[in-house]
């Protein structure tokens, strides 16, 4: 301190830094910092609730249990801040020795869309029109013609004479094209057969939406529109927790329900009893009864996706 003061230079003279050089460097640095700050401005404007934790969160598979607990707590706080509702977010793990399959009786379905609306409520999907996971197609009796199928039908009553109705949702394929195309591995197939999305890892490129032959994936172009009074507060990380804007979502067979032994919401809502669900590894399950006794078929068998969603005609 006493040495440097008389010598004049602010920095070590041995490194050749003169006052002139230093000022130059300082000016450049300041300009750089300014530019970085300017480029970050949109981030600052992003959201008052912008959260470094969410930004730096690891992939679902890399989270330790302790980290997962923290993430779940954070998601609950976020939901509270966003909607003012106490939502529980759980991480429901798959059951051992279980693989789910679904069967739908087209001879009985009347196309009332109760399933689609029950799903919307159960899974907190955006109430903006068109976001429902289940699309009910109306077709002429005599064949399955997806080209001329109509999902906007709106008669006084259903079923209409000469028509039949085919609800389509995620088929939880054994060879899912959607997970293959994901560039960041944000969507994958769980051991129990359910194809899931990590909403915090998804970058919103929508490749999966394009890859799906069943039109089963939905993209949140806008922040999901939810009615806090009407929200399902029992949620799971991989299924029905409130989603951010710009991510993909899809039917998970109500993962948070079925992994606890319950039926999916769409099944319970069906007034005709057209839907059946169960564990294909259990020889006494309803799904096995149907697979063994009915002439089941899958949609677009030729594309080789090996769906776990079966249709059959029977009264």
């Amino acid at each position: 301190m006493s040495q440097d003061a008389p010598n004049g230079p602010l920095l070590d003279p041995e490194e050749g830094t003169t006052r002139r050089n230093f000022l130059k460097a300082a000016a450049v640095t300041t300009a750089g910092v300014g530019a970085v700050a300017a480029s970050l401005a949109p981030l600052r404007e992003l959201d008052a609730t912008f959260d470094k934790e969410a930004w730096l969160q690891k992939h679902y598979h890399e989270l330790t249990p302790a980290e997962m607990d923290k993430v779940l707590a954070r998601l609950e706080d976020e939901a509270k801040a966003e909607y003012g509702v106490d939502v529980t977010v759980r991480d429901v793990k798959p059951k051992a020795k279980t693989k789910y399959a679904y069967a739908l009786n087209l001879g009985v379905c009347v196309g009332c869309r109760r399933c689609a609306y029950a799903c919307e409520k159960e899974n907190n999907t955006s109430r903006a029109p068109g976001k429902q996971y289940i699309r009910v197609l109306e077709m002429e009796q005599g064949g399955i013609d997806l080209e001329t199928a109509n999902h906007q039908y709106d008669p006084e009553t259903v079923p209409q004479p000469g028509k039949f109705y085919m609800p389509v949702q995620c088929h939880q394929c054994d060879k899912p094209p959607c997970t293959k195309v994901c560039p960041v591995n944000a969507t994958w197939k769980e051991p129990d057969g359910i194809v899931v999305v990590d909403y915090n890892w998804c970058i919103g490129c929508r490749y999966c939406e394009a890859a799906c032959p069943y039109w089963a994936r939905r993209f949140n172009f806008e922040k999901p529109v939810l009615n806090p009074a009407d929200m399902n507060t029992d949620t799971a990380y991989l299924s029905n927790r409130p989603r951010p804007v710009g991510v993909m979502e899809k039917c998970t067979f109500c993962l948070h329900r079925v992994r606890e032994g319950r039926y999916p919401a769409c099944l319970e809502a069906c007034p005709t009893g057209a839907r059946a669900f169960g564990n294909v590894y259990d020889p006494k399950s309803e799904i096995r009864y149907i697979l063994e006794n009915k002439r089941v078929f899958v949609l677009k068998e030729d594309v080789g996706t090996l769906p776990n969603f079966f249709y059959y005609f029977d009264a």
């Binding site: 009786n105 564990n279 309803e286 149907i290 006794n293």
Partner: peptide, 13 residues
């Protein structure tokens, strides 16, 4: 009885 007719609710398990 088998699960292919009529409506169910509750627990598949």
């Amino acid at each position: 009885l088998g699960g292919a007719h009529g409506r169910r609710s509750g627990f598949w398990d």
